[in-house]
């Protein structure tokens, strides 16, 4: 179901750890999604968001080498883009304004993440 639902969807991946970003990119491509990025730093993420006209969903690592990803998340939410956080933090570490945002604990189980991003994008 998630494979079909993510096909040709433009999914932004923000993840500073190359191997994780690479894995995620491969998995998303495997289910037919078009990966935007991945990018590993906040400025690149913001630049990408501003440059892309169409973003269907986003997977955001909360901590980008010490930088917090929240400004990018705010931008996406403002544009109505559904997002999913991947994080090593406790839920309590995430600001309350993102309480409605789906969250996948690292190390991410890829199927769970795909389902989460699918749910976020299609309600």
């Amino acid at each position: 179901m998630s494979e079909r639902s993510l096909r040709d969807c433009r999914v932004l991946v923000v993840e500073d750890e190359f191997m994780l970003a690479d894995d995620l990119q491969n998995e998303l491509q495997d289910v037919g999604a078009i990966v935007l990025g991945p990018v590993g730093v906040l400025v690149a993420a913001i630049a990408l968001i501003q440059a892309e006209e169409r973003i269907d969903g986003a997977v955001l690592d909360a901590n980008l080498g010490g930088e917090l990803v929240y400004p990018a998340a705010d931008l996406l939410i403002e544009r109505g883009v559904p997002i999913v956080f991947t994080t090593g933090y406790d839920a309590s570490a995430i600001p309350s304004r993102f309480s409605a945002v789906a969250r996948c604990d690292k190390p991410v189980r890829i199927n769970a993440l795909l389902q989460a991003i699918g749910r976020a994008m299609h309600g």
Partner: peptide, 16 residues
Amino acid sequence: AELQHRTRNLMGVVRS
């Protein structure tokens, strides 16, 4: 929090 983050990332790297 940082430690949690790193540890979980490391697990992801190991898996990868």
